[in-house]
Amino acid sequence: MNLKCLLSVALTFICLSITGCESVEAWERGTLAKPEMAIEGDALEATLNNHIYFSKEASNGGHSATGGGCGCN
């Protein structure tokens, strides 16, 4: 088997593997929406930190998502 043929097979396998990647669907996000799954554990502390951050940086947004992880915002 020459190198070109081997590369083609490898590329085919990689491409098919990519299409097989599992994604968490919108209706399966119940566990992800739990408070303990939040990156920042304390919502109040996170709000304060964000407030300080955007006051100092004169910028807002782009670093956290709102809502309960339901993909609707």
Partner: peptide, 15 residues
């Protein structure tokens, strides 16, 4: 089991 939202292929909640 989420069979119906899968059939409708919903993208976000609620739909």
């Amino acid at each position: 089991q989420g069979k119906t939202p899968a059939a409708y292929k919903i993208k976000g909640m609620p739909t």
